[in-house]
Amino acid sequence: MNSIQVVTFSSAQTLYGVMSSQVAGLYRASDEPSADGIVDLIQFLEGAADTGRRAGAAAEGGQGGAAAGAHPEEAFAAVHRNGKELVIRSHTGKRYLVPGPVELTELSLDVFQLLPSLISKRSENRGVRAAFAHGDLIGLLVDLDRVTVLS
């Protein structure tokens, strides 16, 4: 096996990927009846500040949005109305809210690299396990199992 499939999506500042082997389902957030138990993946990875930025950007686009610092369920409701958010369901049944659009991409194993120790030793983020090159961009590979453990 020289390549793996990765589901990619982007926040305002970073490209992320999740191995497709960790993904059991993917659907629009607007089809999700309840916010209960959903992990906002970008909020988990980047903190509340970025959630505020995303919500603010959505509001500027006239597509709804939540105020920075809003309760997580209120933020979910706002992006739910936005219609661009998606939900990833993992094999363990856990659900993760991610910003759309997402892409399913086949990437050569050669483009993956463990995080440099400079990063791993100076980061508090345990959800990111590796980095990958994707065209001119560098993406961060998220391990959903690590997010589940910590959330």
């Binding site: 970073t14 400079l118 990063i119 100076r122 560098i138």
Partner: peptide, 27 residues
């Protein structure tokens, strides 16, 4: 061309950059 930010890192870490096909951490 660009330095990719890595969330959760100390402010002294700029992020990751691709140099000669290798991804390196940048201060």
């Amino acid at each position: 061309k660009s330095i990719a930010k890595v969330p959760g890192c100390a402010s002294v870490i700029a992020g990751l950059a691709s140099v000669g096909g290798e991804i390196v951490g940048v201060v």
